[in-house]
Simulated assay, not measured.
Amino acid sequence: MALPIIGADQRLAEQRGVKGCIFGKSGIGKTSLLWTLDPGRTLFMDLEAGDLAIEGWAGDSIRPRTWTECRDFAVFIGGPNPALRDEQPYSPAHHAAVCQKFGDPAALDRFDTIFVDSITVAGRLCFGWCKGQPEAFSEKTGKPDVRGAYGLHGREMIAWLTHLQHTRAKNVWFVGILDERLDDFNRKVFQPQIDGSKTGLELPGKVDEVITMAELKSEGGEPYRAFVCQTINPWGFPAKDRSGRLDRIEEPHLGRLMAKIRTPVSPASARLTYTPPPADPAPADQPNPQS
């Protein structure tokens, strides 16, 4: 058996979907981004039952109400993970059982984008399920163990996100609420609203794009919505662009954003640039050290 090396031509020819998350304050218009996607090619995972903002949108949706349903939809969309044992979620046995319930997964071939609204609610469903599992109770006293529940919650959420992230042929976008608070030094910080800390800390490393949908102001002081897409930004918003194709600020149109991500890649020399800040001018009463 030859070493299964994937050649450069084969790798570049593979169909790859964009995986990303979009965070923003409540009411900024995250769900309304569905209007910027092709309804015939988009599957809406409606966890919030907040589809009033897209009343009249012609796309299809699914509405999981429990964490078990969330896991079932994930394995149905992403297929089985052959590395897992039969008793584990997302295993071949789990996939076979879900296919027996839902039918042929080829029914999803017409969708190229999965829009999950929201990861905040998914985290709540997951935590509610975790609180009823044996790991959430002390072995000695039988009383609830919050640390055990949060530990299980972190593992469950990361496994769910990882499985959807490995759905190579489809775009998967997670939407979530962004909290704003002050830290111990009275500095403004932003944090995704997800139960537990593990998911929020590891999520940026799981996806290609982390985008904040924010309200910015023009030079004249007029507010406008925008996508903040680069890690280095003056507002401190969480952001990341693995493609190297996005500007710091992009228009809040998810369809055109994905089209830009798929444009020809920039040369490697242009993707990471270094421009040092200008030197501070020397005080008037002191000589310039560079003179």
Rank of each mutant, 00 (worst) to 15 (best):
D46K: 04
D46I: 01
D46P: 00
D46V: 07
D46N: 12
E48Y: 00
A49T: 15
A49R: 09
A49S: 15
G50S: 11
D51V: 02
A53P: 02
G56V: 04
A58P: 05
S61Y: 03
R63V: 02
P64W: 03
P64F: 06
R65S: 15
R65L: 15
R71D: 12
R71T: 14
D72C: 12
D72L: 15
A74W: 07
F76K: 00
I77T: 11
G78A: 14
G78Q: 07
P80M: 10
P80Q: 12
N81R: 09
N81A: 04
N81Q: 07
P82K: 14
A83F: 02
R85S: 10
D86S: 13
D86G: 12
E87H: 09
P89G: 03
S91T: 05
A93N: 03
A93V: 05
H94Y: 10
H95L: 11
A96P: 04
A96I: 09
A97V: 00
V98M: 08
V98F: 09
G103Q: 07
D104P: 06
D104N: 14
D104K: 06
A107L: 09
L108A: 08
R110T: 04
D112T: 14
D112A: 15
T113I: 10
F115V: 13
V116F: 09
D117H: 04
I119M: 10
I119Y: 11
I119T: 12
V121H: 11
G123I: 15
R124I: 15
W129S: 14
C130T: 09
C130K: 00
P134F: 11
P134I: 12
P134Y: 07
E135I: 05
F137N: 08
F137S: 07
F137G: 05
E139V: 10
K143R: 02
P144T: 10
V146R: 11
R147E: 06
R147G: 03
R147N: 03
Y150N: 00
Y150L: 03
Y150Q: 00
L152R: 00
H153Q: 03
G154D: 00
E156S: 01
M157Y: 03
I158P: 04
L161S: 06
L164K: 08
Q165A: 12
T167R: 15
T167S: 14
A169S: 11
K170M: 14
N171P: 00
N171I: 02
N171L: 00
V172D: 09
W173Y: 12
W173F: 09
